[in-house]
Write a protein that binds this DNA or RNA. Structure first.
Length: 468
RNA sequence: GGCGGCAUAGCCAAGUGGUAAGGCAGGGGACUGCAAAUCCUCUACGCCCCGGUUCAAAUCCGGGUGCCGCCUCCA
């Protein structure tokens, strides 16, 4: 089976065929850096990071680019309000973006271009559109002539006539048509601006992505992704600009992730329910949050609240506990060599995992495969004989899956301090003498220090837990 | 008004014609000195409602109802 993905452009699931065999060019719309990212931004970053990781797992050489919108009205407003320099503010939130997303297991993109670093390319792009008659200057602004692009609306499924009916017509607009959108905007006197053939100004929002895609990935790319809300107008406008200029298809596949809601309500400033990742990761293990997000399909709407994250976290713990038990068994048991049947079973689980992921990156179903594995694996561990080869292969397999999902399944072990080891030994002796009062006293003592003891047929083992 | 999505157990969530996965929570049992971990078992006579097609429908068709998103530089 091959990778299949749902393409917004065609509104159906398609088999993935990259432009160039074995290589994937992928662009994801990044944030406007005027604040800490919220949990909705994070979902987008997390799910497309997962897509990227899976394509790499499938053997593709992926070039992954995601931008920062580092100049924009909102940034200017935020800087004004904070009394800070516009560029310093953007820089700060770019750093915070990296901090927050990396806590959530998101790998850095191959390139993180910024608007402010792409200005010559943006200006050249606009000049090209004017030269071809797709854009016009109007009192220092430049607008894209939407109706001059016949395919306008093909991505979002809107016709220009439908849009016309709902279009908001602003008073005093410099546009020739309400559907036209800005490529370049003249700056106000005190605003940050760049020199251009038309005015001191700055680019419109949509043009940056078109220019960056072209500059860093080429005229046609394989996958263009972003949040569902970007489909229109942002991506629709990108398509219009890019395809008008290059006369080539901009992207083969368009992926859009579903919206995240807070307690079944839209996240909005007016409701005051914005959840910032930076706050969240102080309260929760960030991996719980990532695991929670990946348990549902990326295109589905996702409700977010504390109970749901905790429930997902409990599931994650089940997997981690299983692997701790596997590791313990690996270290403490004699080898029972005949593991052929189980090695085959592992292969079949790997196949199931891949089938689920091939189906439009259905990480939720892929995780179900992990739980099925854990169930059978636990039964294996209960048996009297285990093969070291099988145990090692189980650990390798979860290591691999963890890499694809971006979740750490193996808990870091630190060295057991010698005095704690002594306590465990003392307790063992007490138990031998059936002095359970003393044994429990030691166990409780260690528990207070965050060390939990478990007695198994292979001896007493310990693990770190949060201090009670 | 236009475009799109979703309705399955207490909660999350699979399942696109063949007789309801998985996770969390909860009940019962086994194992254990007691725990922990684990296993077994129970919890949807029914998949928003009403019709229809079919030997057979959560799944297909028709008609409703409810919720949500976009059409406002919000991922």
């Amino acid at each position: 089976m091959a990778v299949q993905l749902y393409n917004t452009l065609t509104r159906q699931k398609e088999v993935f065929h990259p432009l160039e065999e074995g290589k994937v060019k992928m662009y994801v719309c990044g944030p406007t850096v005027y604040n800490y990212i919220h949990i909705g931004n994070a979902r987008s970053a997390v799910v497309f990071d997962m897509v990227r990781r899976y394509l790499i797992y499938r053997g593709y050489d992926v070039k992954y680019v995601t931008n920062f919108t580092d100049v924009d009205d909102k940034i200017i407003d935020a800087a004004k309000e904070a009394g800070e320099d516009v560029f310093a503010l953007a820089e700060k939130f770019i750093e915070k973006f990296h901090e927050d997303t990396s806590a959530l297991g998101v790998k850095r993109a191959d390139l993180h271009p910024r608007v402010t670093e792409t200005m010559p390319d943006i200006i050249a792009f606009i000049e090209g559109l004017i030269a071809k008659g797709y854009a016009y200057e109007s009192a220092g602004d430049v607008y894209f002539k939407t109706r001059s692009f016949p395919d306008y609306g093909k991505l979002s499924g809107q016709s220009t006539d439908d849009l016309q009916a709902g279009a908001r017509i602003e008073v005093g607009e410099r546009k020739q048509d309400p559907l036209d959108f800005a490529l370049w905007k003249q700056a106000k006197a005190d605003e940050v601006s760049w020199e251009s053939p038309w005015s001191q100004g700055r680019p419109g929002w949509h043009i940056e992505c078109s220019a960056m895609v072209k500059k860093y990935l080429g005229e046609t790319i394989d996958i263009h992704a972003g949040g569902q809300d970007l489909t229109f107008p942002h991506h629709e406008n990108e398509v219009a600009q890019s395809e008008a200029l290059t006369e080539e298809q901009m992207a083969s596949y368009w992926l859009h992730n579903g919206y995240l809601q807070i307690d079944n309500e839209k996240m909005s400033k007016s409701l005051g329910n914005f959840v910032l990742v930076n706050d969240l990761i102080r309260e929760y293990d960030p991996e719980k949050i990532r695991f929670f997000m990946l348990q549902s399909h990326y295109r589905q709407p996702l409700n977010f609240n504390a109970e749901l994250v905790e429930a997902a976290g409990a599931g994650l713990s089940r997997i981690r506990t299983f692997l701790e038990n596997v590791r313990h068994r690996y270290r403490t048991s004699a080898d029972f060599a005949d593991g052929e049947a189980w090695l085959q079973k592992i292969e079949s689980f790997k196949g199931r995992f891949m089938n689920e992921m091939d189906d439009d990156f259905h990480s939720g179903n892929a995780i179900t495969v992990l739980f099925d594995f854990v169930k059978e694996g636990n039964l294996y561990l209960q048996g009297p004989h285990t093969s070291r080869e099988v145990l090692r292969e189980i650990m390798n397999t979860f290591q691999e899956w963890g890499e694809v999902l971006g979740v750490t399944f193996f808990v870091e072990e630190d060295l057991l301090p010698a005095d704690i080891e002594d306590y465990i030994e003392q307790r063992g002796k007490a138990r031998e003498h059936r002095n359970f009062q003393e044994a429990d006293r030691i166990r409780d003592l260690l528990k207070e220090e965050g060390i939990e003891l478990e007695d198994t047929p292979q001896g007493t083992r310990w693990k770190r837990v949060s201090k009670s």
